[in-house]
Design a binder for these strands. Structure first.
Lengths: 139, 139
DNA sequence: AATAGACTTTGTACTCATTATATTATAACA
DNA sequence: TGTTATAATATAATGAGTACAAAGTCTATT
């Protein structure tokens, strides 16, 4: 899911039952173009120079809406902040304790065989690893 | 790892390079006896009536120490709080969006086959699912 | 046992991500 | 065009977690 133009994002939002606005479309485009799992604060700081009247509350409202409508996943890497990911292909995350980067890790998660989950409705699955990445391990 | 008496916990802490104190031992015992993935606040509220001078800072200090020494795992279920788990057997967690409970899920996580992780040093692996549990799904 | 030094606990004040609320702006529609 | 619904914004409030300094506790040494 690489960059989409605004017209394309507009119809994508409508498809997902979200009334489009410039703010919403640009925030979503930013997430798709920058799969760096940004926080609400980072989104705000990146887009503020362009959307000059953007408010942090709007970013929070928009992220809540996106999560509710299922077009963005919240990622809880650390306890004090939420990160967001517009990539819904099944993948996990690796957080490097040294450089702080969050890596996407392709992974197959098969939950159908877990008997404990009989009767459970699974809405999202996340896998999170931590440690040191290759670069930081080499130093 | 069911309940241990205090003497047993004392030596366990020493084994793990932690100087024992009443606060530390009781907090650890509480975690082992109550595998409900409590927050620091919940630990504080549960133990405060007994350890009458307990301070929240002590709970935070202790949890940080336990995590650093590797006898407790932090769990990031939601973005605004950290939960703690003294169970180090490999398992994942399922958070019910309806009743809020966090379930332990036995699961096998095999990361050795993931080529992306070549050269990475994995310190911890967590798997987190969300949705509705069996009880809440039936209603 | 007394003293000193190191470590632990505690209370207060603070930070900062997020939320609540109320107001203003924009879009939709009769 | 006027009216209503929805979205965006600014400000204030909340609450988990942290920083810091003072007070308490433990332990080793004399």
């Amino acid at each position: 899911m690489i960059s989409k133009n605004m017209a394309c994002i507009k119809s994508f939002l409508i498809e997902n039952d979200i009334k489009p606005s410039i703010q919403r479309a640009r925030i979503y485009q930013f997430l798709v173009d920058n799969p760096i799992h940004p926080t609400a604060d980072e989104i705000y700081n990146q887009l503020n120079p362009e959307l000059i009247t953007l408010s942090k509350t709007t970013v929070y409202n928009t992220m809540h809406l996106f999560v509710e409508k299922g077009i963005v996943q919240p990622i809880h890497v650390e306890g004090n902040e939420v990160r967001y990911d517009a990539d819904f292909s099944q993948h996990g995350h690796f957080k490097c304790d040294c450089c702080g980067k969050v890596f996407d890790i392709n992974i197959d998660l098969n939950t159908s065989s877990i008997t404990q989950l009989k009767g459970f409705k699974i809405k999202s699955i996340q896998m999170l690893m931590s440690g040191t990445c290759e670069k930081c391990s080499c130093q």
